[in-house]
Amino acid sequence: MEIFGVPTQALFGQLLIGLINGSFYALLSLGLAVIFGLLNIINFTHGAQYMLGAFCAYLLLEKLGLGYWWALVIAPVLVGALGIIIERTMLKQLYKLDHLYGLLLTFGLALVIQGVFRNQYGSSGQPYAIPPALAGGHNLGFMFLPTYRAWVIVASVVICFGTWFLIERTKLGSYLRAATENPELVQAFGINVPRMITLTYGFGVALAALAGVMAGPIYQVSPQMGADLIIVVFAVVVIGGMGSIMGSILTGFGLGVLEGLTKVFYPEASNTVIFIVMALVLLVKPAGLFGTQK
């Protein structure tokens, strides 16, 4: 069976890869958006923290024999705690300065973290086996669906919407949104804004680490796995605009699928299509698809 001269197997296969990539774009751009909302800092370390999540899972398995499900809990907590230390000791000093300093600091931190891991593990990737419970797959008739990939897509959709619910529909989320609008006023109501900022950064970083753990079995665990990805995620963020949580999620998944389709119909452009979309969006709607220009 063929659609537009392309075998359906290939088409759906690439669509699946697109959805997988989109899951990671959505998770990472969501974390960036949450952090940016409260801290006004673009977290350049996000890619390195995603990598740390994957390495955490790898090391837990190699050194302690703790498997995937443990890693799914422990890695985000550890990397999130590291994030909290970074926020308390370094980022905190920068809030009164130009936002660009936050970008430069987190870029430097990313270089340090990635450099240390490259010294230790070289540039090549370490394999991470798919957990037994999620091995295998199903034949859907029109394509073969590996269970682990289905899990990643479902899990990230659940996490994304859970985060959306937390921020848009709960009391805690309403404090968060209020502090994004006017921190001084929220502080005056007796809410501890600095602690909220710290926890928000920790939460955003933990999301990146969680994405890293899920990415381990699909891509290999390597020191550079986050470096190029984060640039694509930046483009996703520019396209979506960071104003809306739902916007980040939809843009992430949408662009992943678009990238997958490009791989089918015009493979040469598959690396660049997201950047081209970014250029077009900037021409038509500079604030981004879901953003509002301040």
């Binding site: 430069l104 870029f107 430097g108 931190l109 270089l111 990635q114 450099g115 010294n119």
Partner: peptide, 21 residues
């Protein structure tokens, strides 16, 4: 020193931003 160059560069970034703007 290989990849340590990146670590040193990153360290200089962090130092510059925090103490030596």
């Amino acid at each position: 020193l290989g990849a340590w160059v990146t670590v040193v560069q990153g360290g200089i970034f962090v130092l510059c931003v925090l103490t030596f703007r």
